[in-house]
Nucleic acid binder design. Structure first.
Length: 753
DNA sequence: CACAGGTCTCTTTTT
DNA sequence: GAGACCTGTG
């Protein structure tokens, strides 16, 4: 390892400064990961630090695995004994052997978002709170925020004393926490908060971990919240070897409690710390960097930092505004295809970044139609899928049935004739008699007000679980899973419920995947245990499509949040519109920092691009059930004109926008001239309006019989015939994928290819 | 009381 | 396009 040759002077300084607090302010693309990896390897090989004395915390599992791999490459297998993990996984590990001290069962479970929702619903029922007056989501946000600030229900109540609204929320919080606790569950925030509690209340435990983790590093430090800060502060308090790496300009998780002052005030929190700034960028062209710098300069709350590169200026940043999301997607897809066909790029060189997950649909359609290979980095997680939640709930119920939430989830699934009313009665009965929900089932005859039919079904259910439990003793997890599927008729249920055959197929694949994961775990674990299995896997945001490895040559579609830490030769940022990016919420927020967060997200997006960056926007977009016109994002205007290459100026767009009518009727008429025709969100009302009011322009198509054409949804096909159909020309096309179809030329928008 | 089928609402971002 | 909510029927 030749540090001075392989690293720049600042990076080298960060690597050698192993003792004491260190703050590495690492701009985007400044070789941050490289620096951390060298630092770890340096600790291991030069400083002879034992690998188990090193803790490296990241935010995502992906980042953790990547880092582990790269350290292993440099420092050999000893790296395997370091603890490189996410905050949440590290806490689970620590809590694993200490949960009892806090009164939790050893087999505590993790409550994911779905569990949180069902728990809060129960609480609402119990406290008779109307979800319309107090949306569950908002309550959960407040509770999560309180936990991020390490406030217990009692603390929270004290802090908000005298505020009737917050006092009410405090009541919900208390009940919510009670429910979690009595079911032996911790939500994501509890994992951190309880670890901090553990350290505070049990100094010997803290001391043990302080001795264990003598060298600590935290990646993406700008995204830490107060509880995470306290956690690492406690852990590092003895040896003070704490190295944090981050970029205040890339702090994009304020909505989940990230406290940007953790990084801005690091020097205050850890006096005498060493600060290293990495500003040389090795990723992007100068134009891209200048654009990023220009945008982020508009933020007030930041440490001054400016990226520079020794590399080329590169091409200008392109901005294109299209009529609607469909046109926007087509534009991007056409470009990608052209560049691929010219042999300039392969699909894997491209990423399309969006602000929201929903935007991906339109983009997917456009790519699919052109047979472009793509992948969506999805927000939907495997463990949150309904099918998987159902089946794991069954598995855990068969295993221990200690968790009421899970039993209630499956008791009437598939439908057995056990309704909400009966379930409520049993819950009340169970609470009154100090029984778990499941144990209450065995005394169903004593529960009043439950119809005989339901009672019979409940008895059957109870016995079925016991039966499966008995037989599961001598079969593996996947054997038990099979029994569950057989006994419950779950597959038939799925088949009946599935909206489409494809959906059913997909769900079957999920189950197959669950089986594989169970088998893999059972083969590896010393003492296989389902609760442990869930804790290990439930935290992993594993995407469904991770098979095949990264060798796939595919265009990636993802949100900008998901893109953090990645880089691509060509980046498209779609939906650069006021109202979408920055979003309405941020624009309307009275907190000026809301816009700053959006701007940082924009900065993250821009700095993903290595060579080429294209920003696109749609002039109209469906939002909240109606079509709305949007002007170009303010972020576009913040990029100096000389860096931009655009078809229209943002100002021109604004002028155009002013000509657009404002009331609905006029808007709809105007809209007819911008035909996103069959886009999925196209509501009945608008179609009716079009049919009634407008004549579709009758133009002789630009293609003739025998020509190959492209339809935005059906894909490519051959024109069989063109007939004058009165109001419009009627075209018959034989599509390669979907066969012969007749359509009107004005609507179909066929393109000759 | 259970359930099917309909309507309405709402979509930022995630461990 | 999913999930919550409402209504009529058995």
């Amino acid at each position: 390892m030749d540090i001075d040759r392989e690293l720049n002077p600042e990076q080298a300084r960060a690597v050698r400064q192993t003792e004491g607090p260190v703050l590495i302010l690492a701009g985007a693309g400044s070789g941050k990961t490289r620096t951390i990896v060298y630092r770890m390897a340096y600790l291991l090989t030069e400083m002879k630090v034992a690998p188990w004395n090193i803790l490296a915390v990241t935010f995502t599992n992906k980042a953790a695995n990547e880092m582990k791999e790269r350290i292993r490459e440099m420092a050999g297998n000893a790296a395997g004994q370091m603890l490189v993990s996410t905050f949440h996984s590290a806490c689970v590990r620590i809590l694993y052997s200490n949960a009892r001290k806090l009164g939790y069962p050893e087999k505590f479970e993790i409550a994911d978002t779905t569990d949180q929702k069902s728990i809060i619903k129960n609480v609402y029922k119990k406290l008779q709170i109307d979800p319309k007056k107090q949306p569950e989501k908002m309550t959960l946000n407040i509770i999560s925020g309180a936990k991020d600030e390490l406030l217990s229900p009692e603390d929270f109540e004290r802090v908000n004393y005298g505020d009737p609204y917050m006092e009410r929320v405090a009541g919900i919080y208390r009940e919510y926490q009670k429910t979690l606790f009595s079911n032996g569950m911790m939500d994501f925030d509890d994992l951190i908060m309880n670890t901090v509690r553990l350290f505070r209340e049990f100094p010997d435990v803290l001391d043990h971990y302080q001795e264990r983790f003598r060298y600590i590093s935290v990646d993406e430090y700008q995204d830490t919240n107060t509880s995470q800060f306290e956690l690492i502060r406690l852990l590092s308090d003895k040896y003070k070897n704490i190295c944090v790496v981050g970029d205040d300009d890339q702090s994009i998780y304020r909505f989940r409690g990230a406290n940007i002052y953790n990084i801005l005030d690091f020097e205050k929190h850890f006096p005498g710390c060493c600060v290293v700034k990495l500003e040389e960028n090795y990723r992007s062209t100068e134009n891209i960097l200048n654009a990023a710098n220009a945008v982020i300069k508009h933020n007030s709350e930041r440490k001054y930092k400016s990226l520079w590169t020794a590399g080329d200026k590169g091409e200008r940043i392109r901005f294109r505004q299209l009529s609607d999301p469909t046109a926007e997607a087509s534009f991007i897809a056409d470009e990608i295809r052209t560049k691929k066909e010219r042999g300039e790029r392969s699909y894997g060189d491209f990423a399309i970044l969006t602000r929201t997950n929903i935007q991906s649909k339109e983009l997917e359609d456009a790519l699919r139609v052109r047979s472009i290979e793509y992948d969506v980095v999805k927000g939907l997680r495997f463990w949150d899928t309904k099918v998987i939640k159902d089946l794991t709930s069954y598995l855990l119920t068969v295993d221990n049935a200690l968790n009421d939430i899970r039993v209630i989830r499956i008791i009437n699934l598939p439908k057995r004739g056990i309704g909400d009313a009966s379930i409520n009665k049993i819950s009340v009965f169970a609470a009154a008699n100090g029984l778990s929900f499941f144990d209450a089932l065995s005394r169903i005859e004593y529960v009043g007000g439950v119809p005989a039919k339901a009672k019979a079904a409940i008895r059957d259910f109870y016995e079925m679980i016991l039966r499966i439990r008995a037989s599961s003793k001598n079969m593996g997890f996947s054997g038990t899973l099979n029994r569950i599927l057989e006994e419950t008729g779950y597959m038939d249920y799925l088949f009946m419920e599935a909206e489409t055959p494809d959906r059913y197929k997909e769900e079957k694949e999920y189950i197959e995947k669950l089986r594989e994961t169970l088998d893999a775990y059972e083969n590896e674990a010393e003492e296989p245990d389902l609760t442990d299995f869930m804790r290990q896997n439930g935290l992993e945001g594993s995407n469904l499509d991770k098979e095949g490895g990264d060798s796939k040559d595919k265009v990636l579609i993802m949100t900008m949040h998901n893109a953090k830490g990645l880089e691509f030769p060509e980046v498209y940022m779609a939906g650069m519109e006021e109202g979408l990016f920055p979003g309405y919420a941020a624009i309307n927020s009275e907190d000026p920092l809301a816009i700053e967060e959006e701007r940082r997200l924009c900065y993250v997006g821009i700095t993903r691009a290595k060579e080429s960056l294209t920003l696109t926007a749609a002039r109209s977009r469906m939002a909240k059930g109606e079509w709305r016109f949007a002007s170009a994002s303010r972020f576009i205007k913040e990029i100096p004109k000389e860096l931009l290459n655009m078809s229209t100026t943002p100002e021109a767009t604004e002028r155009k926008e002013k000509i657009f009518p404002i009331n609905r009727e006029e808007a709809e008429r105007a809209f007819e001239r911008i035909p996103p025709a069959f886009s999925p969100g196209f509501k009945k009302r608008s179609i009716a309006a079009i049919k009634k009011g407008s004549e579709i322009e009758k133009v002789l198509p630009a293609y003739k019989e025998g020509d190959r054409v492209m339809h935005f949804k059906q894909g490519e096909g051959t024109v069989l015939s063109i007939r004058d159909g009165g109001r419009d020309y009627e075209v018959t096309v034989d599509f390669d994928k979907t066969g012969v179809r007749k359509m009107f030329a004005g609507f179909a928008k066929l393109k000759k290819i």
